[in-house]
Design a binder for these strands. Structure first.
Length: 596
RNA sequence: GGACCUGUAGCUCAAUUGGAUAGAGCAUCUCACUACGGAUGAGAAGGUUAGGAGUUCGACUCUCUUCAGGUUCACCA
């Protein structure tokens, strides 16, 4: 039983004993004590002054005194205004650390028998990945890890957007201007090659529009009847009819793109268990529409189009099938949701998709609910804000993006320069050094993107935003490496295994107690991060832990400690911190080095 | 115009879900090591939480309103 549960229960018992008041343990408001006050747990007594009929201070004293008498772990209490602070005995915290050292899976929660699918990444195959995709991929991968640590069985899925008129645009431009260029002949990564022609298309289209304008075309005609645009649409039609030439080109270019994506994913450190391709799923969902028509969830308009009325939910009428019987975006998503459920029997389905689709997912969830789907309540849109640049919005059509490959390479290079200048890894082989630079550069980038609340849009300044000091990934990685240095030295002295060690000490330094308190919160933080789909909870927690440890590091010495028992305790203690830092960072998809 | 999201220190972000004097990092200024790793630690300074009203013991948090920025309201995906 954790100290929180123990205290909560004791408080309920106390309220019952003193005031004959019944309170559920879950309703007890227990919070961490602020650092400037003495104690570790705080109970807010304001709501109970009505029961005690005395001042908040008096109420706190009465409750505090009762707990002091009945709970052996409580060393003392103090009351400030209406805040009752408990000081827990050092012996309790020493035992807590002992438990943490022994628990190999500390932080993880037991399997809960639930299955969740996390769909993320979902790239278009007409252009390379950019900064926005990095946020998406890091979020998705991390949330999948966090849910797994919470006891879910997790399936990571990638729904590849490999068809549509935008894909045809790159294909068409390649056909017109490509001259048989290949990744090999151009030296370009496959996805970058496709992206090059997507930009080419846009340029050519704009040039043609200008010509048409001078030729006296109306704006509307230019918009809708531009020959190049019509050609692209015609190409899509041919693709749907299975035209061999078009399909072959599509296959060839997509293969290039996938080859490029795989390299990018590898550098990102993300992976998937299941790929869906829109070319396979874009016709799905029509049976669902049929079913909905029969059950009266949908209705048909005169021109044959099918709709759902969501005005009662405060939304609009929404089209689910065109008049000509073809699908729209939501039709497809309905079908895909159904497919995912049939294939995996998932209880929850998380969609990591940008916030410009907030409305779409609200509608999707409503529709599935109205259709009575058992998985409808489990649909969760993990919506995240755009990543802005100082120069404004990124536009992939115009090529004004921060390319994911370029950015990652730049981070790795910068990390390398930084590390080399410090000269601490002179004994590394070139391969080891390169590996380390990747760990550090990617650590900085991932941490920067994950420490922020997903739904907030964020500003990315390439020059200033990425730091290696302060509230950053490398700061945490550094703390870990520093502890590893201690552990190495201890190991060389013959101290390696602490699982059989009993801590024979009875007093803790304040800085030690703070670290143990922080450590003990790890399981709760994992739960909170899972409940809220928020890697930022873990990111900020690990930073606090690292900071607390660094204070300990500066205040007390490990190897100069004369008392052998205390010395051994501090090594085991440091090892536990390193272990939690490592686990926490891995939940974010960030590796931690032992030397840097 | 309707709906939704965001607004906190010069900058980038927190705030345990309604709790104590709103906290960190960067930048600025002061300090601390013959040490176990200075990619560190301690301190100073920096705030009318966009503005206003309300709810109550108590509001960055909830309600209303004004302002600013963004997203979305396609028989596009």
């Amino acid at each position: 039983m954790t100290i929180n549960i123990l205290l909560e229960k004791a408080i309920c018992d106390t309220l019952k004993a003193l005031f004959d008041f019944d309170l559920a343990t879950s309703a007890v408001l227990l919070q961490p004590t602020r650092k400037e006050f003495d104690g570790s747990h705080t109970f807010v007594v304001f709501p109970y002054t009505k029961l005690s009929k005395v001042s908040p201070e008096e109420t706190g004293k009465i409750i505090g005194e009762h707990l002091l008498q009945t709970v052996p772990q409580v060393a003392s209490y103090n009351v400030v205004k209406g805040f009752l602070n408990f000081v827990i005995k050092d012996s309790f915290w020493i035992n807590t650390l002992q438990d943490i050292v022994l628990d190999k899976t500390f932080g993880n929660h037991a399997a809960n028998g639930q299955k969740v699918m996390v769909e993320y990444s979902s790239p278009n195959t007409n252009k390379p990945l950019h900064l926005g995709h990095l946020r998406n991929n890091f979020l998705g991968f991390s949330v999948a890890n966090i849910l797994q640590a919470n006891g879910y069985e997790v399936i990571k899925a990638n729904l590849v957007n490999d068809r549509g008129v935008h894909i045809c645009k790159s294909m068409l431009a390649y056909q017109k201007f490509g001259n048989g260029e290949t990744p090999e002949s151009s030296g370009l990564k496959g996805d970058h090659l496709a992206g090059k022609y997507y930009v080419e298309f846009d340029k050519a289209l704009k040039a043609q529009n200008a010509t048409l304008e001078t030729a006296g075309w109306s704006a509307e005609d230019i918009e809708k009847k531009n020959p190049m645009l019509l050609e692209a649409q015609d190409m899509l039609l041919k693709w749907e009819q299975g035209d061999k030439e078009v399909v072959d080109l599509w296959k060839k270019m997509n293969a290039w793109v996938y080859d490029g994506f795989n390299k990018t994913y590898k550098t990102m450190g993300v992976s998937f268990d299941k790929f869906y391709y829109e070319s396979d799923t874009y016709l799905l969902g029509k049976e669902v529409v049929e079913e909905g028509l029969k059950s009266g969830v949908f209705f048909k308009k005169d021109n044959g189009s099918v709709w759902i009325d969501l005005t009662a939910e405060g939304l609009d009428e929404k089209l689910v099938l065109r008049g000509d019987g073809t699908s729209v975006y939501i039709t497809q998503d309905m079908g895909t949701a159904e497919l995912k459920y049939k294939e995996f029997g998932i209880n929850k389905s998380v969609y990591v998709v940008g916030n410009e689709q907030d409305y779409h997912f609200v509608v999707l969830k409503h529709i599935m609910k109205k259709l009575g789907r058992p998985y409808a309540d489990g649909i969760y849109h993990l919506s995240y804000g755009m990543v802005d640049l100082p120069s404004g919005k990124m536009k992939s059509r115009e090529g004004t993006v921060v390319d994911a490959d370029d950015l990652m390479q730049e981070m790795i290079t910068t990390a390398g320069e930084h590390t080399a200048a410090l000269g601490k890894i002179d004994d590394f082989t070139p391969e080891q050094a390169q590996q380390l630079y990747t760990t550090l550069g990617m650590g900085a980038l991932k941490y920067f993107l994950l420490k922020v609340d997903p739904k907030k849009r964020m500003l990315f300044n390439p020059q200033e935003s990425i730091e290696f000091q302060g509230h950053t990934g490398p700061f945490i990685q550094y703390t870990h490496a520093r502890i590893c240095a201690i552990l190495r030295k201890a190991a060389s002295m013959g101290h390696q295994d602490f699982t059989s060690l009993t801590f024979n000490i009875n007093k803790l330094e304040n800085c030690e107690k703070e670290v143990i308190i922080a450590l003990s919160q790890f399981p709760d933080k994992i739960k909170e991060a899972g409940d809220e789909y928020a890697p930022s909870v873990i990111a900020n927690y690990i930073f606090e832990l690292a900071k607390d440890y660094n204070r300990f590091y500066n205040e007390v010495s490990v190897f100069n400690e004369p008392d052998q028992e205390v010395f051994m305790f501090r090594i085991a203690f440091s090892g536990a911190v390193a272990s939690v830092i490592k686990k926490g960072m891995l939940l974010l998809g960030i590796d931690v080095p032992e030397k840097m």
